[in-house]
Each structure stands twice: as structure tokens, then as C-alpha cells.
Design a protein around this nucleic acid. Structure first.
Length: 226
DNA sequence: CCCTGATTCGC
DNA sequence: GCGAATCAGG
């Protein structure tokens, strides 16, 4: 596997979104966790809550072991030694893009400036949040009118990873890395990251027991079987 | 043990 | 540039 632009974009997006290297590697496929980490560092992105590098302002007492003969690596390399590097300039906080409707900002799964609360990665590579992070299943102030769920003709072309903005539906279609992977790109339900149609998929009301209907099929054929 | 990311270094 | 091996912390 080679690092195509698509794969790099997915890597960046997921990495910055807080997905773990394992998740990214699993989603990309064909690469190991180490490959993802190595590539991420080569790309310049780095430094996310690392379990190993939690502390910095302390001279860590390395192993005062006896002079190791030279089993494999003669030079002792400190794994956690870094110069006082300034914190990476995080993306600016998202301003309330659509405050007009009165609907407060919802938990947008915007990966470029998201809290590291990602729990898992969805079938399309989007970042799925935990149940606790997804506040109200049915948010207030629904639109008065349902807009047609069809993608607008102005976005006839496929919405790529880089075409995402606050106004297009960011529901993934297909799988990242595949040639036809794109996003819905339809007009968003104001205040939400998805269009009306996909909002219905993303936020499902919890019906009382016994009154449940079978869940609708996944849009992209479900998780990739590997 | 499992997980995580960081780093090195041969390719 | 790539990534397996390795390290180190949780």
C-alpha cells in the first residue's frame, strides 16, 4: 500500500480528530499502526495525548543499568526527550457558524477542531462519538420545513474530504481510500453536520421497548468486512 | 497481558 | 520515505 492523497487526507483527518493510530490503521487497511504513526510524524502532525510522554518538566531518571554490552542498540536512545517545543497550534475554535436559527451548537463531529473524545470510527471513516457525548438524540428547534434530501445540483461533483464545510452534509459515502469515497454533500440541516435525511440516521429517537422498528439499513453496506 | 504513541534505523 | 522493532507509560 502506498500513501495516496486520499489515504493521507484520511490519516490527517482522523489523527487530528483524535482517533487512535490503531483505529486509523484499521480503517485505512493495509498498513500497520506503526506505519500510521510514522507517517503522521513525517507529515508533521504529532503530539497527541501520548501515554508515554505525559510529563515533560522533569528530568526522567533513565535506567541506571550497568553498561549494556551491545545487544542490539548500542546507543541508548531516550524515547521521551524533547526540547521545549511549543504546543502545536491547534485549529482555531469553531465560531458559531449558524447561530441565526437559535439552535445552539450541536456536537459537531468536526474532526479538524474536535475534542479528543472519539470513541470509535464509523464505517465511512467518520469519527463516532460516545453516547455520553451526543447530548440530545432529538435536538430542539427542528427546521420548519423539510428540505429535499437530494444533493443540490450545484454539488454535482463528488464532495471530497477537502470539500467539507459547514454547509454540506458530511455523511460519508463509501469507504476512505477507495476511489469513489466521498461525502453526501447535500445541504445540511441547519445546526447539524448532516442533511435532513442523514440527520435522521445520525440521531435516532429511542423508542420505548416493544415499539421499536427495525433499524434502517446502513447507507454504505455497513462496516467493511475484512 | 492489553493498550497507547515515540523513536530509531535498516531498507 | 517507509515501517518493523523497540521502548516506555497507562
Amino acid at each position: 500500500m502506498s500513501w495516496t492523497d486520499e489515504r493521507i487526507a484520511t490519516l490527517k483527518k482522523m489523527w487530528e480528530g483524535g482517533a487512535t493510530a490503531s483505529q486509523i490503521a484499521d480503517e485505512l487497511g493495509g498498513v500497520s499502526r506503526n506505519a500510521v504513526i510514522g507517517k503522521a510524524h513525517r507529515l508533521g502532525l504529532k503530539s497527541r495525548p501520548s501515554p508515554v510522554k505525559a510529563n515533560e518538566p522533569k528530568k526522567v531518571e533513565k535506567k541506571a543499568a550497568a553498561p549494556a554490552p551491545a545487544p542490539r542498540k548500542p546507543a541508548p536512545r531516550p524515547a521521551a526527550t524533547k526540547a521545549p517545543e511549543p504546543a502545536p497550534a491547534a485549529a482555531p475554535a469553531r465560531p458559531p457558524a449558524s447561530a441565526g436559527t437559535g439552535a445552539p451548537a450541536q456536537p459537531l463531529p468536526n474532526p479538524s477542531s474536535n475534542l479528543p473524545k472519539i470513541v470509535s470510527v464509523g464505517p465511512g471513516g467518520f469519527l463516532r462519538q460516545g453516547p455520553g457525548d451526543q447530548q440530545a438524540p432529538i435536538p430542539p428547534a427542528p427546521p420548519r420545513r423539510l428540505v429535499p434530501a437530494k444533493p443540490s445540483p450545484e454539488i454535482a461533483d463528488k464532495t471530497s474530504l477537502l470539500d467539507l464545510n459547514d454547509r454540506v452534509c458530511r455523511w460519508p459515502m463509501g469507504h476512505p481510500g477507495e476511489p469513489d469515497f466521498h461525502f453526501c454533500g447535500g445541504p445540511v440541516n441547519p445546526g447539524f453536520p448532516y442533511c435532513v435525511e442523514h440527520c435522521g440516521r445520525a440521531y435516532q429517537a429511542q423508542l420505548p421497548r416493544g415499539a421499536r422498528r427495525p433499524p434502517p439499513p446502513l447507507p454504505f453496506g455497513g462496516p467493511r468486512v475484512r
